[in-house]
């Protein structure tokens, strides 16, 4: 499967990934996000803005993710933490933009 990612420099990338991959790991592998805590929902350095058409098709945010996102200065209604998104086959074509580091 493939996902569409716009990195912090504004480059549009098409990334190959596999079902079961965590979005954060796919992005970290290319050093596109810091992912300091390794996906423990502790650092909020893997924020992405999800394309509006895709937002409702992702599993809902859990409480801790909401809490961290709420306090980021650059978050909005499209924000997700990539560590909380496990890629499934129906997410082929998912389109996200990586948020700048706070």
């Amino acid at each position: 499967m493939k996902i569409n990612v716009t990195d912090r420099a504004g480059n549009a990338l098409v990334l190959d990934c596999e079902e079961g991959d965590r979005l954060m790991d796919v992005l970290a592998e290319l050093d596109l996000v810091e992912a300091t805590c390794g996906g423990e929902c502790s650092c909020a350095t893997c924020q992405v803005y999800v394309d509006p058409g895709w937002l409702a098709r992702l599993p809902a945010r859990e409480e801790l993710e909401v809490e961290l996102l709420d306090e980021l200065l650059n978050s909005n209604a499209q924000s997700r933490l990539a560590c909380q998104i496990n890629l499934e086959s129906e997410m082929d074509g998912l389109t996200v933009t990586i948020a700048s580091a706070e």
Binding site: C41, A44, E71
Partner: peptide, 10 residues
Amino acid sequence: AGGDFMVAKR
């Protein structure tokens, strides 16, 4: 209190 932490960092 993850939200507090995010603010505390700032």
